[in-house]
Design a binder for these strands. Structure first.
Lengths: 352, 352
DNA sequence: CCCCATTCTGACAACGTTGTCCACCCTCTC
DNA sequence: GAGAGGGTGGACAACGTTGTCAGAATGGGG
């Protein structure tokens, strides 16, 4: 005649053996709600009762279960960040900046890397939505973000950074890639270059496309032809980038070798600086994105600098403004880039 | 005679206007549990019923509320990572590695930066515990982690990385800082140096203390005296580090200037490489931690390399082994460092 | 000495999901 | 045609918290 008749009960206490408010209440000899009031610092509890409750809390090692709280309150006080690679020196400070803003608003940050894979991005984002994050900051990898529309309609604030959303209107914080690239190429042209190469990221990535557009615009404005062998877009793995750079510098094509290169992002740049012609100062170089120690290389690397931390901060601030209720039309914030001449961009052409 | 008598109801639907399983069930004309079965891919639903439920799900834009699921199931499938600074090039790959392992186990990563502040670390960790993360990976900043004992007892798996827990037994994954530093200094001694300086992080940080110990051991083993003006520990801000380096190199003390430096981590190293005496190759340098482009500086920087990604991966793997039930005694994993000679450490002393 | 106002406290429902258990319906067999 | 048996579907409780509301206790004034 064992206790066969007792109602549903899990085999094991959840969460190890964590005490709940009920346990605290029993121990302190008060009601459940009184414990809740003490835990949340609500008024209306006599000092004596409060003390008893506090004692029970410490004695039992109680810690409020935020999962239950979240379920009840409907706010998670957490935001999601999805980017390409947390370890990329460009995105790491961006991520840190988002975290700081989140912290200032009492929110935690959940983040994940999409590895530049649209499907993985989607999975991550939807997992975050299932967690009911209050908002999302996304550096998009995919080419269609309409899957987010129901989520946004349901109240998940969403801000895109570095690249805009695809096939959808949404808040975005971007750098002026087109203008930056154009300025970088113009800089090279001003130093006498006429045959300039561009090595960039995958063409489906917005920034890569914009920077290519900037490159072409600067060339066209100077009345210079662009030989298609001078343009190489693709994954940023060192093998591919290095091969493209060496090919352009050797110049087997009819148009001849390039005398200068514009690199499309920090990953490309740090590979290209290893190419002998660049290291030996025979080919000029302007790199998109600043990077640590750029000024200590020989020659020091001229860059078009963005401010990743500022991108992250602006995006997070916009996100929290939305969370506080701002519901005007989607906004696109554009941040300027800054050309930092250091030497590698000022090398004159060696084959004039 | 308005509906004054109806029971408790929040003013506004939670989570925007998200549909729940109840809504889906009503629309599909089935029971609540059947929807749950479909959503979780449980068996026992006829294809026809499943189709009807799926249609209702898409029509309503339903997405399961993981907060409720978590509350019910007692597992959050998320782990917390607390480190000093997400943007530090040493910690970023570590963080990424933890994320990859978490992803492989279907868990999300919540992370926060402690900014090397023990109190902030504690707040973060406890917030994560309140969220009931399944486990924690911590790069500790504080000097007493006993506050974690109740949490660990309650079942939060915890692994420390890079530095051990203070005043507590716990799993830890570390680099062999002592041996690494000793090897670095021995390398300098082998190249003829007798007056070697050490510039490190705050002495309360375990790795800094260990590396200092390694430095002293190598000097002692070679029978070399250490003048206290050759040792400088403190925050890694560039101003402090640079001043200390310049002071040691100028050598106003009775013991004379140093002819070589050991730097205690990547932040210190990238500051010290800017000191003129180092850039001009008048002072030898061995840096703890490898860093990008170290081989392209002049002179190329000799380093004691750790593998941050491996540290992160080992820690996360250990964490998940714990989560899967391994409950043997706390384990300390130590990873070797690797001396990478590149030039800056092989410069002979200029004042013999 | 009673009554009312003012604190303080606690019972109860609800958040959205999952686990348990029972009822039903179909098909198959005798 | 009836009973057995397997396969589906649904009612209900429970996870741990917070919001509502009513009841209890206290104190002061008439």
């Amino acid at each position: 005649m064992a206790d066969t008749a007792r109602p549903t009960r899990p085999a094991r206490r959840r969460y190890g053996l964590r005490p709940t408010m009920k346990d605290v209440a029993a121990r302190a000899g008060v009601g459940l709600k009184t414990v809740s009031r003490v835990v949340n610092g609500e008024p209306g509890v006599t000092p004596d009762t409060e003390r008893r409750v506090q004692e029970a809390i410490t004695a039992l090692g109680f810690r409020r279960n935020d999962s239950a709280r979240i379920l009840r309150k409907g706010r998670t006080s957490s935001i999601g960040l999805v980017l390409e690679d947390l370890a990329d020196p460009f995105y790491a400070p961006l991520s840190r900046a988002v975290e700081e803003v989140a912290r200032a608003h009492g929110a935690l940050l959940i983040n994940g890397s999409s590895a530049e894979d649209g499907e993985r991005e989607r999975e991550l984002v939807l997992a975050l939505c299932a967690r009911r994050v209050d908002g999302l900051v996304i550096i998009p990898a995919g080419d269609d973000h309409r899957y987010l529309e129901p989520e946004i309609a349901a109240g998940v604030a969403t801000v895109f950074v570095d690249r805009p959303a695809a096939r959808m209107e949404a808040d975005a914080v971007l750098s002026r890639s087109f203008e930056g690239a154009r300025e970088g190429v113009a800089h090279l042209i001003a130093h006498g270059h006429r045959r300039i190469g561009f090595i960039g990221d995958l063409p489906r990535i917005h920034t890569a496309a914009e920077r290519l557009r900037g490159y072409r615009a600067a060339m066209a404005e100077a009345g210079l032809p662009v030989d298609e062998s001078w343009v190489a877009l693709g994954p940023t793995d060192p093998g591919r980038v290095r091969a493209d750079a060496e090919r352009m510098v050797a110049g087997p094509g009819a148009a001849g070798p390039v005398t200068a290169l514009l690199t499309g992002n920090n990953r490309v740049t740090v590979t290209v600086v290893r190419v002998p012609a660049v290291r030996e100062g025979r080919v000029a170089l302007v790199g998109f994105d600043d990077f640590e120690l750029a000024d200590l290389l020989t020659p020091p690397v001229t860059v078009i600098a963005q401010e990743p931390a500022l991108l992250g901060r602006k995006a997070a601030e916009l996100l929290f403004r939305r969370l506080e209720g701002a519901d005007d039309a989607p906004r696109r914030v554009e941040l300027p880039t800054r050309l930092v001449p250091r030497g590698s961009g000022e090398i004159p052409p060696s084959h004039p």
